[in-house]
Design a protein around this nucleic acid. Sequence first.
DNA 1: TATTGTTATACTCTATAACTATA
DNA 2: TATAGTTATAGAGTATAACAATA
Lengths: 162, 162
Amino acid sequence: MVVVTPPLERRSESNDVVRLIDLFHEVLRASLRELHPTLTKEGITMGQFWAIHTVSSLQGASVSTVARYLGVSAPTVCGNIDQLEDAGLVRRHRSERDRRAVELSLTPRGRKVEARIWSEIAGVMAEAARGLPETDVAASVRVFTAVTHRLSRSGTLRPEGT
Amino acid sequence: MVVVTPPLERRSESNDVVRLIDLFHEVLRASLRELHPTLTKEGITMGQFWAIHTVSSLQGASVSTVARYLGVSAPTVCGNIDQLEDAGLVRRHRSERDRRAVELSLTPRGRKVEARIWSEIAGVMAEAARGLPETDVAASVRVFTAVTHRLSRSGTLRPEGT
DNA sequence: TATTGTTATACTCTATAACTATA
DNA sequence: TATAGTTATAGAGTATAACAATA
């Protein structure tokens, strides 16, 4: 791992935070590497996977809702959904109440693909986290939950408002 | 935040791990959003920032060393360094011992830019982590350190060997 | 007028392949 | 023959702008 040289003059209590960010970046890269073969095998991309996950979590979500949640533009999600629909993993149908909107849902096959990928991820991560104290993992969840809340508060859900 | 619906039939101890991944994804997106304006202001991209950070951490590193560390291809790093050199943030000079290799170093201006960006990141994250128990943050660092080690072990440092 | 979804288009990032020069 | 760096090129991924249908 890259050794964190002090990037700040002061070496205050924020050092732990900087270290955490560096670790975060490494875990990110390593996770993407691990996940890549699985996604390739299923024939979908990272963006498509997160689209599937969001459609699955938010039942009956629209394109723009998914876009807001993932923090990407509507055309990006639209393209992802196009491909997922072609692959038979996601269904579109016009909303009855607001005929501009499109309601998204997973097909049975889409649900199976999502489950397989999550299962693969969980296996890899469980392996990587094996033997770690439950209390430490729980503490990480607490930290990330809190950080997520505050970041998404201040972030005001771009990228529309650039 | 996206509610994690049970993606696995079994709801075993791996549930915490799945939750952690979902949180991880959210923190990632939120962090990138936070960081984007700062990087734009400094006139560099995310990839260029990590290149600067790696050059700074690994004193006298070569292009290929940086590429291996970041898990990206040599041409990508080469391009990043090109732009950073044009911007006057990084210097190249041929190694004396192996005249194929290029040794990289930050210019004084490059060091200032790195410090400013880290300072900004640390500020944002410290704000986001404010009030959290020190012990929880420390536990997160332990978890991420362990996970990083095991993931980079099994990952065998692609993307050359695809 | 504002909003949803979509299409058209351009730009950035990244990778593979091919080339040069050293070893 | 292998390695370090570079150049050329192509493919993903994403965003902005413009458009159609609906509210």
